[in-house]
Simulated scan of single mutants.
Amino acid sequence: MTHPELWIGSFDQLLRHDLTGCRHAARRAALLLERLVDSGDLDAELKSLCEAMTERLLDQAGAPA
């Protein structure tokens, strides 16, 4: 697994958002997922999933996509 710190950070923020509804955690998770997508190390399916989750998190955070 490449970039373990980004995976751990995004999962941590995703869990915080899911458990607390924190919009800041949603935004941070989305930013970390964007960094993973931009790294170019993901296969097409995982990249698509990360992009979809990023969009959902940004919608929930009230941030522009």
Rank of each mutant, 00 (worst) to 15 (best):
G9W: 09
L36A: 02
A63D: 09
I8Y: 09
E51W: 04
L57K: 07
D18R: 14
L49V: 07
A61L: 01
G40A: 08
A29C: 08
P64H: 04
Q13R: 14
C50K: 11
S39Y: 10
L33V: 00
G62V: 00
F11L: 08
M53P: 01
A29Q: 01
R16F: 01
P4H: 04
A63H: 06
D59M: 02
G9I: 01
G9R: 07
A26F: 12
A52M: 07
A44H: 13
L31A: 13
E34H: 10
A29R: 00
D18G: 06
W7S: 09
D12T: 05
D43H: 10
T54S: 10
A52T: 05
L31R: 08
A65Q: 11
W7G: 01
G21L: 03
W7F: 14
T54P: 06
Q60M: 04
L6I: 11
D18T: 11
G40P: 11
D43T: 12
E51Q: 15
L14A: 09
L6R: 00
I8M: 10
D43I: 12
D38N: 14
E45P: 05
A26Q: 11
S48R: 15
A63M: 08
S39H: 08
A44D: 15
G21M: 07
R16L: 10
D59T: 00
L19E: 05
E45V: 15
L57A: 02
I8K: 15
L31I: 01
T2P: 14
L33D: 03
Q13E: 14
V37A: 08
Q13N: 15
A25F: 00
M53C: 11
V37W: 05
E34N: 04
L32G: 01
A65I: 02
R27N: 12
A63I: 04
T20M: 08
A30L: 04
A63G: 00
A25R: 00
L57R: 04
D18K: 09
L32D: 03
W7M: 09
K47H: 06
L33R: 14
G62T: 00
D43F: 10
H17G: 10
L31G: 12
H17S: 08
R28A: 13
L49I: 10
L33F: 09
L19C: 04
H24T: 15
C22F: 02
I8V: 13
T20N: 06
L46C: 10
